[in-house]
């Protein structure tokens, strides 16, 4: 140390390497996986507002919110399944359609509370079947929910004969679907409330902690004495309840219900979750971020609709978005290891 005194910067680098602390450099991939969604969403909205005709109108923004709300409610519920490292719940397609049809058809026949109670029981059944098959029987979640999708949609189409149900022109369902507070439809406010509630479940409750813990290391969670089957069942039940409420909101928006109305909910919700920054590798994620992902996916879909790009292009874009977002996450993890 005699002779030339080291400069302050050198000393810090020296101390860091002495303590074995690696200097953290700015890593683009990690940043994109972690914070990218904020920038991308803002950029997308700005670009849309500047360059797409008709995007920045009040009517269009209300329309975006109306379409985003059911998908968003489904997505925030499904976030728990993704965080628990069970890929996704494909059966939300069947669940949303079932809840919508039950709400309209049963409330026409008897009353709204009866319809909601029946839908709730159906949602519980979905959550239990999916959750027990995945959590207790250790079956693969994609295959299980693929088969429950076909079973559920099959039962729904068989019972309804594929017919469309119309709600009464006046009534609570209709008025829920049309009420607006400023540009915000009531469904958007329901989405925000559910997001806050589920966010509290994920960050403040024992169950939320266990879902994250199970997602990041299921073996360690099991060895810690946790009944891991209940964690998986709980995650699938939350997903089913989200899908049920999403179905209610979807039915109220159009005041009609048909078994084919929820096509595409599975991958739109998954895209929203993954783009929001919840990792498909499990253990990492947040419900609030899913809300941001929903905004991103909905604005993107709206831009494509306004630009005259059809269903095919939308599906291509969202499929590519899923693969791209997961790739960034995966590459960032690889970069962090090496």
């Amino acid at each position: 140390m005699a002779g030339k005194p080291p400069s302050a910067v050198d000393t810090r680098a020296q101390v860091d390497s002495d303590l074995g602390i690696e200097k953290r450099e700015f890593r683009l991939l990690e940043w994109m996986a972690d914070r990218g969604i904020f920038v991308f969403t803002t950029a997308l909205v700005l670009v849309a507002a500047l360059f797409i005709d008709g995007f920045a109108s009040l009517a269009n923004i209300t329309d975006v919110f109306n379409r985003a709300a059911p998908i968003g409610i489904v997505a925030v519920g499904m976030t728990f399944v993704v965080i628990s490292a069970n890929y996704l719940d494909l059966s939300v397609v069947a669940q949303v359609a079932t809840a919508a049809v039950v709400l309209i058809a049963v409330s026409n026949a008897s009353s709204i509370p009866a319809a909601m109670a029946l839908a709730f029981l159906i949602a519980l059944a979905y959550g239990l079947v999916n959750g027990v098959a995945v959590g207790v029987f250790k079956a693969n979640a994609v295959i299980v929910t693929l088969s429950t999708t076909f079973i559920g949609l099959g039962i729904l189409r068989w019972l309804t004969g594929g017919s469309i149900y119309f709600g009464p022109p006046e009534g609570p369902i209709r008025s829920f679907g049309t009420t607006k507070i400023g540009p915000f439809p009531l469904s958007m406010i329901v989405l925000v409330l559910i997001t806050i509630a589920l966010s509290l479940v994920l960050t403040r409750t024992n169950f939320g902690f266990l879902v994250k813990s199970y997602g990041s290391n299921r073996e360690a969670t099991r060895l810690a004495g946790v009944n891991t089957a209940w964690v998986v069942v709980g995650a699938f039940i939350l997903s089913a309840l989200g899908a049920m409420l999403g179905g209610f909101v979807l039915a109220a928006f159009s005041n009609t219900a048909v078994s084919a109305m929820s096509t595409g909910f599975d991958f739109r919700a998954l895209a929203a979750i993954i783009v929001g920054g919840t990792s498909v590798f499990g253990g990492k994620g947040s419900v609030m971020r899913t809300l941001l992902g929903v905004v991103f996916v909905s604005v993107l879909t709206n831009i494509m609709v306004l630009s005259g790009l059809g269903f095919g292009y939308q599906q291509m874009a969202i499929g590519a978005l899923i693969v791209a977002a997961v790739s960034v996450d995966s590459l960032a993890r690889k970069a962090a290891v090496t």
């Binding site: 693969n140 498909v280 269903f311 599906q315 969202i318 499929g319 690889k334």
Partner: peptide, 27 residues
């Protein structure tokens, strides 16, 4: 190469290619 779980990678491809089939055929 990218290291994504094949369930998710091929699920994304499932959606992407279904869209591609619609686009190529003009729906």
């Amino acid at each position: 190469v990218v290291g994504i779980n094949s369930f998710i990678a091929t699920l994304g491809m499932l959606f992407f290619l279904r869209g591609a089939a619609f686009v190529i055929s003009g729906e």
